[in-house]
């Protein structure tokens, strides 16, 4: 469907292309028609019209490139260099397209942390119920353990003892590591940063748990 010409601004390039393909050689009628429709481009259009007429006077057939000349050589260095620039531009363009089609990370859903609403006492109770201690629960809360290393049995136990849906607990554990913010103070001049995550086994072994607790947790 055609839009109203007055309702939009055509780019100069579009106008020049349209002018060029309207007639092989422009005449006064065409030039005036375009100047009337695009008065803002009067100077460009008159220059352009004059150049087209001049161009038609220069040797070289407008209708088709010189077949004889085309036969004489294979791809010239100019064509090769133009292809090279095309390939570079294409690569950049394709990379942009790819980047635009991938959703940016961390912008999506904010994963609820089921540990946030627990009091200190509730955390201690939870630690006892899962045969662990508050150090390990702290690592679970702050997502410092690689989620792929949890056994399904441990995740089920955790969800059951937290009285939370398994999907919520699993989503929390799979979310990026978190540094607790808020009113806490720290001595360092820099804000605390997220450190490297541990495997579940490393976390169990480095949390000061008894041998029996470790055995239980790693057997789930």
């Amino acid at each position: 469907m055609r839009k109203s010409h007055t309702a939009r601004m055509e780019s100069l390039e579009d106008v020049l292309y349209a002018f060029s393909i309207a007639k092989p050689i422009p005449d006064a009628e065409l030039l005036e028609e375009f100047i009337r429709r695009y008065p803002e481009y009067t100077e460009y259009l008159s220059d352009f019209a004059m150049e087209i007429v001049k161009d038609s006077m220069i040797a070289g057939d407008l209708a088709s490139p010189d077949a004889e000349q085309a036969r004489k050589f294979q791809f010239s260095p100019s064509v090769t260099r133009a292809m090279s620039r095309f390939q570079n531009a294409l690569y950049i363009s394709q990379q942009k397209e790819k980047a635009e089609s991938v959703p940016p990370p961390n912008r999506t859903v904010i994963i609820e942390n089921p540990f946030e609403k627990l009091t200190r006492q509730e955390i201690r109770d939870l630690s006892t119920r899962i045969h662990a201690n508050t150090t390990l629960v702290g690592k679970l809360r702050d997502r410092q353990i690689a989620h792929t290393t949890f056994s399904p049995g441990f995740q089920q136990l955790l969800a059951k003892e937290m009285k939370a849906p398994l999907s919520l607990v699993a989503a929390h554990l799979a979310a990026p590591p978190q540094v607790r913010s808020g009113s806490q103070f720290y001595k360092s001049e820099h804000k605390p940063e997220v450190g490297n995550t541990q495997t579940f086994e490393e976390a169990v072994k480095s949390s000061g748990l008894t041998e029996e607790q470790q055995r239980f947790l790693l057997s789930l």
Partner: peptide
């Protein structure tokens, strides 16, 4: 699109615009 319609005239526009 211009080039799919009338290639030589469209290329002429491109050439002359660049020349200008």
């Amino acid at each position: 699109d211009f080039y799919e319609t009338r290639f030589n005239l469209a290329f002429r526009a491109f050439r002359i615009d660049n020349l200008r």
